[in-house]
Simulated scan of single mutants.
Amino acid sequence: MNIKDEVLMDIAQLFLRCSDLIDYEWKEVTFVFEFGEGCTSNSGFLYDGEEITPAAASIEDEQLLLDNTLEQLREDIYQQCGEKFNQLLFQMENETKRFKIDFEFDDPKRWAITPSNMFEMREKLRPKFD
């Protein structure tokens, strides 16, 4: 799978435009996007030391821009390797703007955040940039 660095950098810039990242203090952030038949959902966490705040990735004045961009990435990857990812994991460190993007092709619930596992997942998904 070959994804151009510019594409990944553009995606990271879109995340930085999300309302929750603008409105709240954070040191690290995690978002999980889940892709279904014709729909996309996301949830995540803002980490500020020991303070953890649930978050969603949405750009206030362009509600569908991030979703559509990630759907296009999903389609581009499908064209390259014949598979569509079920989930996308985005993590970023605020100070350095380092980020990671990972894909899940097999287990559609690998990074799923639900009411019953929210406390477990917020620690499991905490970004580590060591």
Rank of each mutant, 00 (worst) to 15 (best):
M1Q: 12
M1P: 11
N2L: 04
K4M: 04
K4L: 04
D5T: 14
D5R: 14
V7Y: 03
V7R: 15
L8H: 03
L8E: 08
L8T: 15
D10H: 13
I11P: 01
A12F: 00
A12M: 07
L14A: 03
L14R: 06
L14M: 14
F15E: 06
L16R: 11
D20Q: 12
L21M: 14
I22R: 15
I22W: 08
D23Q: 15
Y24G: 04
E25M: 08
E25S: 13
W26R: 02
W26S: 05
K27S: 12
K27Q: 13
K27W: 03
K27V: 07
E28R: 02
E28D: 12
V29D: 06
V29Y: 00
T30I: 02
T30M: 00
F31M: 01
F31L: 00
V32T: 05
V32L: 01
F33K: 00
E34H: 02
F35N: 00
F35E: 00
G36P: 02
G38A: 04
C39Y: 14
T40Y: 00
T40C: 06
N42H: 09
N42M: 09
G44C: 05
G44Y: 00
F45C: 10
Y47G: 03
Y47E: 06
D48M: 04
D48R: 05
G49Q: 08
E51Q: 11
E51A: 08
T53M: 10
T53S: 11
T53Q: 12
P54F: 03
A55R: 00
A56S: 10
A57Y: 03
A57W: 02
A57Q: 06
A57V: 04
S58M: 13
S58K: 11
I59D: 07
E60K: 09
D61V: 07
E62G: 05
Q63N: 12
L64F: 06
L65E: 14
L65A: 13
L65D: 09
N68Y: 11
N68S: 12
N68D: 15
T69R: 11
L70I: 14
E71F: 02
Q72C: 06
R74Q: 10
R74T: 03
R74W: 00
D76E: 12
D76F: 03
D76C: 04
Y78T: 02
Q79R: 08
Q79H: 10
Q79T: 06
Q79G: 01
C81V: 14
E83S: 05
K84L: 05
K84N: 08
F85W: 06
Q87G: 05
L88C: 09
L88Q: 01
L88F: 05
L89H: 09
F90Y: 15
Q91K: 07
E95A: 15
E95Q: 14
T96P: 06
K97R: 15
R98Q: 15
R98Y: 11
R98K: 15
F99D: 03
K100H: 15
K100V: 15
K100C: 12
I101W: 01
F103Y: 15
F103P: 04
P108G: 01
P108I: 04
K109N: 11
R110T: 10
W111R: 04
W111I: 02
W111L: 01
A112E: 11
I113D: 01
I113C: 05
T114S: 13
S116C: 05
S116Q: 13
N117I: 05
M118Y: 06
R122L: 10
E123D: 13
L125R: 09
R126W: 10
P127R: 07
F129L: 08
F129S: 12
D130I: 07
D130Q: 10
D130F: 05
